[in-house]
Design a protein around this nucleic acid. Structure first.
Lengths: 219, 219
DNA sequence: TAGATTGTTAATCGATTAACAATC
DNA sequence: TAGATTGTTAATCGATTAACAATC
């Protein structure tokens, strides 16, 4: 079981997790699929289906799901405890925005360092509430990754003109997961099919809204 | 026809559009669905299916699609010529990153102004290559939107603690499309079902990668 | 008990993939 | 002509929704 969980399921799991986090209920309280629907917008049928699919069975008829145990299950699926260490390539506005994104902290995703080549950025330090993240020179990337060999994920926020080249470099350094935010579709080289690449377009959802504004559809 | 185009289709259309843009082929050249597959990663079957579904028929057997006409069709669907005017609420790193995002320029999406309440941000000006975007005080938002009544779209990049409140305000000001980037799931009030709201989680795709790193699945 | 809610199966819906006739 | 590629339909696949028995 648990063979292939799609991003859609993962996203909904995140929703449930964040809902519980926000509610901050006592652990011995219960929450029903109907209540989760009200908070997250995911239908109660979908909620139950997801839990069933993922093998989460912490529900009690008539009451709902025990918050404490549900929380634990969701946490496990999302690997919150294990967390993740990542590097951000490109320390422009987007790279820095990513590094401080609050949801990453909630999800225990730690940006260990940013990399850039601009002299005015290299050597600076990004100060977040609880930690400092250095901006290092891109030439130091290989060395850094060798010293910090737990890091297997990179976020790519460089100009589109150098994105493909950087992707190849990252694969060469042994990265296993790469999210590309550069405004260009990147493709994996043939010899790197074990690497996860996701082209994540910032604000792609905006395009849908633009489309709909101009194509008002009767309900 | 053309009743309900999903975001997935819109995204793929964007891919095709960007592919053509990047290739910069002479207008009398042809491009086949197979070639589009190689560039965008979308299967040639999917490409043809999309074009068929959208009523794009600029293909010639044995040759492919006439670049010039295909370009025109894609442009029309994406409303590139009409473009869109938007405001960005919250001028932190994320808000500024959005404002300068290159794909928005390619797609003719114009950020007209940012809004914030921090004194050190209000009054500053974001300088991009071809234009300047002012950061205004959030209290001026209503007035600004009244004067610029073409603006119907807002991007929300405020702290999560004030996001819901800002959403309500934006709806009050007559916004019709809102993309929420704050790390909190927002929901539309009952009386605003004609407004498009999309909760867009920066780096949501990262979660999938984290999941997969810890749940290595045999192919 | 009656009502509410889970767990689970079945039905529906939508999106992708495959197949292939038409034809340039 | 033979080969390539579209346009279109059909088959498959996957995801969501609906239904409902079990039971607390």
């Amino acid at each position: 079981m648990k063979q292939k969980i799609s991003l859609r399921v993962i996203r909904r799991i995140s929703f449930y997790y964040e809902a519980l986090l926000k509610l901050d209920l006592p652990g011995d309280d219960y929450i029903s699929s109907k209540q989760l629907e009200e908070i997250t917008g995911v239908s109660c049928n979908q909620v139950r289906q997801d839990f069933f699919y993922l093998g989460i069975s912490v529900g009690k008829q008539k009451k709902g799901y025990q918050v404490k145990r549900l929380f634990k299950e969701l946490k496990k699926i999302l690997s919150i405890d294990k967390g993740a260490e990542v590097v951000v390539i490109g320390a422009g506005r987007l790279g820095r925005a990513l590094s401080e994104y609050k949801l990453f902290r909630i999800r225990n995703i730690n940006v260990r360092a940013l990399f850039d080549k601009k002299p005015e950025l290299v050597g600076t330090i990004l100060e977040l509430k609880e930690k400092k993240i250095p901006v290092l020179h891109i030439d130091k990337l290989g060395e850094f990754l060798k010293e910090n060999n737990k890091i297997k994920i990179a976020l790519l926020s460089v100009p589109d003109s150098v994105a493909q080249e950087m992707l190849d470099k990252l694969i060469g350094f042994g990265m296993k997961g790469i999210v590309n935010f550069a405004p260009r579709i990147l493709r994996l080289p043939e010899n790197a099919k074990d690497v996860q690449l996701i082209n994540d377009c910032i604000g792609a959802s905006l395009y849908k809204i633009v489309y709909q504004i101009y194509n008002k559809q009767k309900k």
